[in-house]
Computed example of a mutant assay.
Amino acid sequence: MKLYWGLAAFAGAFAMVGASTVTIAAEFSIRGSHAESTESPLHKGWQVFEAYVESASGGRVEVSISPASQLGSIKDALEQAKIGAIEMAQGDEQNLDGFYKPMMILATPYLFANDEEGQRFLDSDFFMEVREKMAKESGLRFLAASSYGFRCFTNNVKPIKSAADMAGIRMRVPPSPMSLAMVEAMGGSPTPVPWEELYGAMQSGVVDGQENPVGVVLDYSFYQVQKYLTLDNHQLGLNSLMINEQFFQSLPPELRAVVVTGARMAAATEYGERNYQARVSAVEKLRGNGMEVYAPTLEEIETFRAATKEPMQAYLKKELDPGYVDAVYKEVADIRAALVSSVSE
């Protein structure tokens, strides 16, 4: 009897040791890259993606995330995802058109009046077709996207309350033809300045102002060298989760569904925190640091939109199929009308 229990105890102990040291290998591995810190709302979203996908797949999919540009810039990581060196990468409205030109439309100034219009456009049947074409032609699939805030103007000259107030202001813009055309259309003087030189350019007066999301204005202490902030919300910033199309199609249907759901959860996680920051916490902190913050009325916003609409469409129609550009503007107009109708019935 003692021998029996001794052997049983030994066998049980061996089984426990074996269970603790042997792990079941995942069937699929996803390596993802993004450019932001581990404290950012974006990283928190990717963490949600990791936790959901690994859990919902029952361990069949393993996810590892490389934050803070450890694998290179946003563009570099997208290139790696395109060729399959990694499976996923962060995209944004400034880089996707380099992989599929029709995505240029997402960077159009004053296209969306608010985040809801942008999200409905991203979820529309129209844009779903664009996403499918991108996957086939570029090898990168657009899984989901989150707004990280609208770009807004800051300057040191005066409050910008309408398009006419832009006249003569030297406004730093990124090296984007649409950004240049936007400022020119309002009578401003667009001045490309490298990002790493921007703070010094504002401090020394090389430029009068710049345009970025409110969170960026706070994070990089632009309030120290800028007096006025205008919440004109001219360009919707979008962080997207992109995946290598060949890898995505190699997953069984049930795991493809898990990945898509996880990506949407990640986007929703980032958006919640970013939205609060852009509309409440960052604005309050900027005011507390001495900035004058102005929110234009609907009528004033319309002056910005009216001044830039034709130049933007003309530029886009030179770069893209004119029929596609018209279809995009119609889709957004239909979304806007549906939103108004939904609250007036």
Rank of each mutant, 00 (worst) to 15 (best):
M1C: 08
L3G: 09
L7S: 11
L7H: 10
A9V: 15
A11P: 07
F14N: 09
A15V: 12
M16R: 04
M16F: 03
A19T: 13
T21Q: 06
V22K: 06
A25P: 08
F28A: 03
S29A: 03
R31D: 07
G32K: 11
A35V: 11
A35Q: 08
E36M: 12
E36V: 09
S37D: 08
E39S: 13
L42R: 13
Q47V: 14
V48N: 02
V48F: 06
E50A: 04
A56G: 08
G59I: 15
E62P: 09
E62W: 15
I65D: 01
P67L: 09
A68I: 04
S73N: 03
Q80D: 04
A85Q: 05
I86F: 05
I86R: 12
E87N: 13
D92S: 11
L96K: 14
D97I: 10
F99D: 02
M103Y: 15
L111V: 09
F112M: 07
D115C: 05
E116A: 09
E116T: 13
Q119Y: 05
L122R: 03
M128I: 04
E129Y: 09
V130R: 01
E132M: 02
K133W: 12
A135P: 13
G139N: 15
L140F: 15
F142E: 02
L143G: 09
S147R: 10
S147Y: 10
F150L: 09
R151G: 11
F153C: 02
N155Y: 00
V157D: 00
V157W: 00
S162L: 01
A167Q: 01
G168I: 06
M171P: 02
P175E: 04
P175Y: 07
P175A: 12
S176K: 08
M178D: 09
S179F: 11
E184W: 01
G187L: 03
G188Y: 00
G188L: 00
S189P: 12
W195V: 13
A201I: 08
A201K: 01
G205V: 03
V206Q: 01
N212D: 04
V214P: 00
G215L: 08
L218S: 06
S221E: 11
Y223C: 00
Q224K: 13
Q224H: 11
Q224V: 04
K227M: 01
Y228N: 00
Y228T: 00
L229K: 01
D232E: 03
Q235P: 06
L236I: 14
G237T: 15
G237H: 12
S240H: 13
Q246K: 14
Q246H: 07
Q246S: 15
L251N: 04
P252R: 10
V259M: 06
G262S: 10
G262F: 03
A263Y: 01
E270C: 13
E273I: 07
R274G: 12
Q277V: 07
R279S: 05
V280L: 10
S281D: 14
A282M: 03
A282C: 14
E284G: 03
N289T: 03
E292Y: 15
V293P: 07
V293Q: 02
Y294N: 00
A295T: 14
A295G: 05
L298W: 12
I301T: 06
E302N: 02
T303V: 02
T303D: 01
T303E: 00
A306N: 01
Y315T: 08
L316W: 14
L316D: 01
K318E: 09
P322N: 12
K330V: 02
D334Q: 03
D334M: 02
A337Q: 08
S342E: 15
V343D: 04
S344C: 13
